[in-house]
Write a protein that binds this DNA or RNA. Structure first.
Lengths: 193, 193
DNA sequence: CGCGACGTTGATTTGCCTCAACGATTGTGG
DNA sequence: CCACAATCGTTGAGGCAAATCAACGTCGCG
């Protein structure tokens, strides 16, 4: 049932079959319809989510009453609100399925137990965090080093899959621009070619 | 010599005195003059740096030939270029002392050994990464949810120490605005009060 | 069918940058 | 100790990229 997670872990660290079973028995598979939520503002985030199939997004409502997407998670990515988990404060984020999805639910307390029992699992999670942090760094780099137009073009050529699977207004929200702006850039592009 | 690092680790995880010694014997204390570099573009980053005293910054040169600061590290923070470490590619960042500083140098290979030998140390590093990632998330949130003026005001009231220790143009670079812009905001502020 | 969600297009506004010149302060060599 | 340059911050004028506001088109779905 959780083969995909175990396979993913084994790309980075070695775990025995018993350890794999231990991990499997600690998690739950959730089937989510499009637009279903696993976290909403006001609730404390208590789990880490691994995307088996589908696409999740993490977002909040900005001052201007618009959705602000801070993260997407495709297959084999983890997504959660670490801030809420660490501080034990209520989250101000939504985590929502963009498409029909299957995600593995890993409760925070169980994660703590597993990381103590299985050092290799702790290492795996550290490696995932390091990747996530690097991605966040790169994204900030792009925010400060490119114009909005460059950023959109770079994003859509580097992650063409997203343009297929994600509505334009979500891409806009993720990139920190307006949907109108993206529309104009695309109009320009098609004139050139 | 590395008491400060050991104390910091023990705020988050338990380690024995032997483990503490093992860690201490694996690291080196560097004394850096203001403006000294521990990493420059073109070189592969091979270590993690823990700030004992002083202030470090991580930055790169943007397309417009201006410095873009992506991270500061005060006392008790780690700083490095994970991207270069993971990919083993040359870095395109500078890591530089903003003030005279003392940093603890932890070689990547030694870090790998220590994390295998001491699971609690791996856990400590994961916790540090989680904090760093959360901070990066928050920063992106601010970038998309505030005007440049709000962001500067929020930054300077939330981290007043930085305004003492860091020249204005570095704050500007970190916030992604021009030094002139900050100057104007401050002028406005003093008129009001 | 009719409604809502999503995208497009045009006109106007605005927040911040750019360029440029001018202080103030610091540090350095003669 | 002073002259000078370099560094850092301030101020003003003009320009531009993207946001905002608003209207309209189109597709999919209950």
């Amino acid at each position: 049932m959780c083969d995909q997670l175990i396979n993913h872990i084994r790309k980075f660290v070695q775990i025995s079959d018993e350890e794999a079973k231990l991990i499997s028995s600690g998690v739950t598979l959730l089937k989510l319809k499009k637009k279903a939520f696993v976290l909403t503002p006001g609730k404390q985030c208590k789990a880490n989510y691994f995307v088996v199939r589908g696409l999740m997004r993490l977002y909040f409502i900005s001052k201007k009453d618009t959705e602000q997407i801070t993260q997407f998670a495709l297959e084999n990515w983890w997504i959660t609100d670490y801030d809420s988990i660490d501080s034990k404060h209520p989250s101000h984020f939504y985590i929502q399925a963009v498409e029909d999805s299957e995600v593995i639910f890993l409760d925070q307390n169980i994660e703590d137990e597993l990381t103590v029992q299985i050092p290799a699992f702790e290492r795996y999670l550290r490696i995932m965090l390091q990747k996530a942090f690097t991605a966040a760094q790169r994204r900030m780099e792009m925010l400060n080093n490119m114009t909005d137009e460059e950023r959109y073009r770079s994003f859509s050529t580097r992650f063409p899959e997203f343009n297929q699977r994600v509505p334009q207004y979500m891409v806009a929200s993720y990139l920190g621009v307006t949907p109108q702006f993206i529309s104009r850039v695309r109009a320009k592009k098609s004139l050139i070619s």
